Computed example of a mutant assay.
Amino acid sequence: MRLVVIAKECLPGRVKTRLTPPLSPVEAASLAFVSLQQTLDTVRAVDVHERVLLLDGEPDDLDTRGFHIEAQVGGGLDERIAVAFDARSSPVLLIGMDTPQVSLGMLQSVVDDEVSDAWFGPATDGGFWALGLREPRGDLVRGVAMSRADTGEVQLRRLRRAGLGVRRLPALTDVDRIEDAVAVAHVSAGSPFAAAVRSLGLLARSPQAVSAGR
């Protein structure tokens, strides 16, 4: 199996724009960088055939040891994911850069699964953080509208209508908003991401308080 992390370069004003305000564009980009790096570090620990960083932009200061770096194609997110699947003929698990709390155990369990046809990790915002196919097919993703409350539901329906045996992975929270960052930091205490959130002074407040603007 190949593990693919799809990501974009962490440039101010280009990533995590929903964290600004209260964060500055530089702070938001810094948090995105830590999120991505923590994800890469977790993937690096997985016993897998190949690790790929599918990147929109340049790796810059990222530690990408153990990864093959590929450039994303143009087009919408559905097309970029579809092309990543079409380019391969053996099992692929693709994950995003916005769930730094993903664990080694979660990913290794997929790699070791010799039964399922597909793997689907729902995100709590209605999207998905992971999508895997034993027999990669871009047509199963192409045309799915991304960044909507029903994106995950539509994608899962596609897989099931194709007759695939789908294994659902644990639901994770994408770090899109300040309350998401605080919640993820709380469930991944001791991690670099939690330390980064703490350094911004956000962990002094609960996720509920942040959500309420207090």
Rank of each mutant, 00 (worst) to 15 (best):
A87I: 10
R88Y: 10
R88T: 10
S89H: 13
L94A: 06
L94Q: 03
L94K: 04
L94G: 02
L94E: 03
L94Y: 07
I95D: 00
I95L: 13
G96Q: 12
M97F: 10
M97V: 12
T99D: 05
P100Q: 07
P100R: 12
Q101A: 15
V102M: 12
V102L: 10
S103Q: 09
L104C: 06
G105E: 13
G105I: 05
M106P: 05
M106S: 02
L107N: 09
S109I: 01
S109E: 15
V111M: 13
D113W: 02
D113I: 04
D113N: 01
E114I: 04
E114C: 11
V115E: 14
V115S: 13
S116H: 13
S116T: 10
S116A: 15
D117P: 03
A118T: 04
A118C: 12
A118W: 08
W119G: 12
W119L: 08
W119Y: 08
A123N: 01
G127C: 09
F128Y: 15
F128W: 13
F128G: 04
W129N: 10
L131A: 07
L131S: 02
G132R: 01
L133F: 10
L133V: 06
R134V: 08
R134P: 07
E135Q: 12
P136K: 02
R137W: 07
G138S: 02
G138V: 02
D139I: 09
L140G: 08
R142M: 05
V144Y: 07
A145R: 15
A145I: 14
M146N: 12
S147K: 13
R148D: 03
A149V: 15
A149S: 14
D150S: 12
D150H: 06
T151R: 05
G152T: 09
E153C: 04
R157T: 13
R157M: 05
R157W: 11
L159W: 11
R160F: 01
R160E: 15
R160A: 07
R161Q: 15
R161S: 14
A162N: 02
G163T: 04
L164W: 08
L164E: 06
V166F: 01
R167Q: 07
P170V: 09
P170A: 10
A171H: 07
L172Q: 12
D174H: 15
V175F: 07
D176G: 01
D176E: 14
R177S: 07
I178Q: 01
I178G: 00
E179L: 03
E179H: 09
